[in-house]
Design a protein around this nucleic acid. Structure first.
Length: 252
DNA sequence: ATGGCCCCATTTTGGGGA
């Protein structure tokens, strides 16, 4: 099973890149974030894939597309969350949670909303047994966890994505038993999944790691490899997303 | 070539992203 997470920064602008990605890398399941379109106007990606789309006009939005049958799905958490940022699917016996976390701000209202989003997510996760269930949470977490996840620790000190409360949220996932497969592979190496469009950041390797694939232990036992497709971000035409697609392989 | 933003919309300027 090959799964890809990709913050596309508008699916309509990235359609060709997404279609090439699915074909060139033979993706089974694609979790997209920031589709920036309402459900009605979501484009046809490929007839081979079934999509669960949770979008809105202009901002945010997530979609999960799969070659395998989607046996269950849920758009949004139980209870209130006014922005489309969460899709649960059950595919191939694996619980797949696709998230686009709010960016937040430096301790303003949007920061409170970010904390609230993660509170709701942890509440949702209580329904699973992490010792028995195969669970995968992927997407744009908008958190840079450690100094390895920012290109310059001094610059990012005290900035949103790298605030102490946000680092603690990522640590909490690990504490309850999730495994960060990118960090497992690159144990002591700076690897990034986002490069700002401004300042030629990608050419100077001034990136952040804001995207994650977290898996429960039963799924980690099937884990084979993970790859960050930085070359797609470095191409100039067609215009890439500011985020990088990430592919993980499992022996299922 | 050695790079200096890109998306959407109440669209030709402004807000949001990170």
């Amino acid at each position: 099973m090959r799964i890809c997470t990709f913050n596309v920064n508008s699916i309509r602008s990235r359609l060709e890149i997404v279609q090439n990605l699915l074909r060139d890398f033979d993706i089974d399941i694609l979790c997209m974030q920031e589709i920036k379109v309402d459900n009605e106007n979501f484009p046809l990606i490929d007839r081979e894939y079934q999509c669960v789309i949770h979008g809105q006009k202009r901002l945010h939005g997530v979609a999960t597309c799969s070659k395998y049958p989607i046996d269950k799905y849920q758009k949004g958490f139980d209870g209130e969350l006014n922005e489309p940022r969460f899709i649960y699917t059950l595919i191939n016996g694996t619980h797949i949670i696709n998230i686009y976390a709010p960016l937040g701000d430096n301790y303003g209202d949007r920061f409170e909303y970010k904390i609230y989003f993660y509170d709701k997510l942890f509440e949702y996760l209580k329904k699973f047994d992490l010792n028995k269930d195969k669970i995968l949470i992927c997407g744009d977490f908008n958190i840079s966890h450690t100094e390895l996840d920012v290109w310059d620790e001094e610059i990012w000190q005290g900035e949103v994505t790298h605030l102490p409360e946000e680092k603690a949220i990522l640590s909490k996932f690990l504490d309850i038993g999730f495994i960060d497969v990118i960090r497992e592979k690159y144990k002591n190496e700076k690897v990034f999944t986002f490069y700002d469009y401004r300042g030629a950041a990608v050419y100077k390797n001034e990136g952040l790691r804001l995207d994650y694939i977290l898996v429960s232990k039963p799924l980690y036992e099937k884990f084979k490899d993970v790859e960050i497709l930085t070359s797609i971000r470095r191409k100039r035409k067609p215009t890439p997303s500011d985020h990088v697609p990430i592919i993980a392989d499992f022996d299922i």
